[in-house]
């Protein structure tokens, strides 16, 4: 037999682990000895984009695969699911998503440790509510939600997401109360990205467990209050509604901060930022009223001239 086919099955599965779902499945055509190797690899990686509008095919393949792992008691250690609604699910039920309701509990039963879910719609923000089952998935490791409404109903069955390391909300219609509830249930988070979330007014986060890189740039934000995090300001971002910015033990690029616009900023509160020592920094906040700085040195910060 040739060298690769002769490798032990667990090594071949490790090799297939690094392939996309379609590349891994296609190895079944190589020869008879390859036929079933992909069937038991410990990870699954499905993207609806690969099915180009064949909704039924996508659902049936997902169903079959998950059911097979479940029936054979195989564990799916890592599961990556990327779903784009709108082009695929034309008749997507606005109130629920039966397929996710079915798949997510199956994943939990097959012992998934790392669940990476990317779910987005092509619809306008707020038209489709995120199925509540998503925030009930304890194994969530990465969650990317785009163009959904994330209201109280969507998080009604939220569990403590102790595995969640990365949360990315883009064009999500979410209010402060729901956002705070989510954040308080994922305190081990390492990366938080909040982008274009129209209704979000306040971001208030205290991370008790290490530093979390946070990326914020929704123009709607009025308050940002972050303790213990690595904050990334996007270069040149315009925080046109931000009035209150409070950063405690936060690390951030000074260059990026200087390039941002804070036309409405009134209150700036900084503490525990030793990098500010012996540097000069400019903050474009022409309407600043109150600047509190708690450190053992006096910083050199200049503000934009008042309008």
């Amino acid at each position: 037999m040739d060298r690769i086919s002769d490798l032990p099955k667990d090594i071949l599965q490790r090799i297939l682990y690094f392939l996309s779902q379609e590349d891994a499945v296609r190895t079944s055509v190589l020869s008879k000895s390859w036929r079933d190797i992909w069937c038991t690899r410990p990870n699954l990686d499905f993207s609806s984009d690969n099915f180009k509008g064949q909704r039924k095919k996508f659902i049936s393949i997902m169903d079959e695969t998950l059911q097979r792992y479940y029936d054979r008691r195989l564990s799916v250690e890592e599961f990556h699911l990327s779903i784009s609604l709108g082009d695929l699910f034309y008749d997507f039920d606005h109130e629920s998503a039966p397929f996710l309701e079915k798949w997510i509990p199956l994943l939990t039963d097959t012992g998934t440790k790392k669940f990476r879910l990317s779910i987005r719609t092509r619809w306008n923000t707020g038209r489709v509510r995120l199925p509540p089952v998503v925030f009930g998935a304890e194994s969530l490791h990465d969650l990317h939600v785009e163009s959904f409404s994330l209201d109280q109903m969507a998080i009604q069955s939220i569990v403590f997401l102790k595995n969640l390391k990365s949360l990315r909300l883009e064009k999500v219609c979410i209010e402060d109360e729901s956002f705070n509830k989510i954040i308080s249930n994922c305190i081990f988070i390492e990366t938080l990205v909040v982008k274009d979330c129209k209704r979000l007014r306040t971001i208030k986060i205290i991370f008790a467990h290490g530093l979390c890189p946070i990326e914020v740039h929704p123009p709607s934000l009025e308050t940002i209050d972050i303790s213990d995090g690595n904050l990334r300001f996007n270069k040149g971002a315009d925080f046109r509604n931000l009035e209150d910015l409070s950063l405690c033990n936060v690390k951030s690029s000074l260059e990026h901060l200087s390039s941002c616009k804070f036309p409405s900023l009134k209150y700036l509160n900084i503490s525990g930022w030793p990098d500010l020592k012996e540097t000069q920094i400019f903050i474009d906040a022409p309407n600043i009223r109150n600047f509190d700085f708690i450190e053992k040195f006096v910083p050199s910060i200049s503000f934009a001239a008042t309008f």
Binding site: D2, R3, S5, I15, Y17, L19, D23, R26, S31, W34
Partner: peptide, 22 residues
């Protein structure tokens, strides 16, 4: 795995000398 990425079955067979016994 990188070698097999996005490659056709025939290409992978030739590359690794896998005999098609189907």
């Amino acid at each position: 795995a990188q070698v097999m990425e996005k490659k056709s079955v025939g290409w992978v067979r030739r590359k690794f000398g896998i005999e098609n016994d189907y």
